[in-house]
């Protein structure tokens, strides 16, 4: 898995580097005299926007011809219980990575929750196909190394949108790579032709897409710029995940002096 991911990441990085050099020439940095444009450029924090938009369209195309139809079949053919079983199973496989990051963030209570969940769901939940732990009061939470880095004070960095992976700014891309090392499956299936990790990656993608069929349609329909909306949604939901629901309201922008009438 690591090799696969490393390979993929290496290729992706080489591609990104190549295209970004090209894009850097094309990216329209604003006229320094135009204050509003400079502010807009900085707020977007997306210096590689032309390249990112290109990859975004590429993914959208792949979604239309491949991912979306697969997700629709998956959603239509499988009964609800089966889909839930798949989700629970995939969630349970993810537990070691979540646990590692809980610990790295010093979140002992959450680490305990994750460990307990893994114990209960692997046994009582029949290899993770069911999720009795939630009913026992151990609700699931997610964690990843991108979030751990954020807790350590690392900024997200400029926005980056990659083929297949989607939104992956440097901090979170690093997180994805590091998380592979926390994942027991990486070591168990080290030499095994990647069937298991790849199946998991694909199934995870299809399941995620299937659960967001209507939501994504609605977002696309009601957006004046789908790319910018997804960028905003990604950043906001990451901020929410990193804060673990403990957002400081004083960090919200100052809106008391806006007058626009």
């Amino acid at each position: 898995m690591t090799e696969l991911v490393n390979n993929k990441v290496n290729k992706a990085l080489a591609l990104v580097l190549g295209v970004s050099l090209f894009a850097a020439g094309c990216a329209t940095a604003p006229d320094p005299a135009d204050e509003a444009a400079v502010a807009a450029y900085e707020e977007a924090n997306d210096p590689l926007e032309p390249m990112n938009r290109y990859f975004f369209e590429l993914n959208r195309f792949a979604d239309i011809i491949l991912l979306r139809p697969a997700a629709e079949i998956y959603d239509g053919v499988l009964p609800r219980q089966a889909k839930q079983g798949v989700r629970h199973f995939l969630d349970n496989l993810r537990a070691p990575v979540i646990l590692a990051n809980d610990v790295l963030q010093g979140e002992w209570n959450r680490a305990e929750t994750t460990a307990t969940r893994f114990g209960i769901n692997t046994t009582v939940g029949v290899l993770g196909l069911d999720d009795p732990a939630t009913d026992y009061g151990y609700a699931r939470h997610g964690e990843d190394f991108g979030q751990t880095l954020a807790v350590y004070g690392v900024n997200e960095g400029p926005y980056l949108f990659l083929p297949v992976l989607g939104p992956a700014p440097p901090r979170d891309l690093t997180g994805v790579v590091v998380d592979q090392f926390f994942d027991p499956l990486t070591y168990i299936f080290w030499d095994d032709g990647y069937t298991v990790p790849v199946t998991r990656f694909v199934l995870n993608g299809v399941d995620l897409r299937a659960r967001n069929l209507e939501v994504l349609d609605e977002i696309e329909r009601t957006s004046v710029d789908y790319y910018a909306t997804i960028r905003s949604l990604y950043r906001q939901s990451r901020a929410e995940e990193i804060a673990n629901g403990q957002t400081n309201v004083e960090d919200l922008p100052d809106i008391s002096n806006i007058s626009f009438e």
């Binding site: 604003p30 444009a37 807009a40 450029y41 707020e43 977007a44 957006s223 004046v224 710029d225 790319y227 910018a228 909306t229 960028r231 905003s232 949604l233 950043r235 906001q236 939901s237 901020a239 929410e240 995940e241 922008p253």
Partner: peptide
């Protein structure tokens, strides 16, 4: 809603449309 501030989302999108 679900971690997304609606006005913030509009702002990010509208500014992008104007700038582009």
């Amino acid at each position: 809603v679900l971690g997304i501030w609606m006005a913030q989302e509009q702002r990010d999108t509208f500014i992008s449309v104007i700038r582009n």
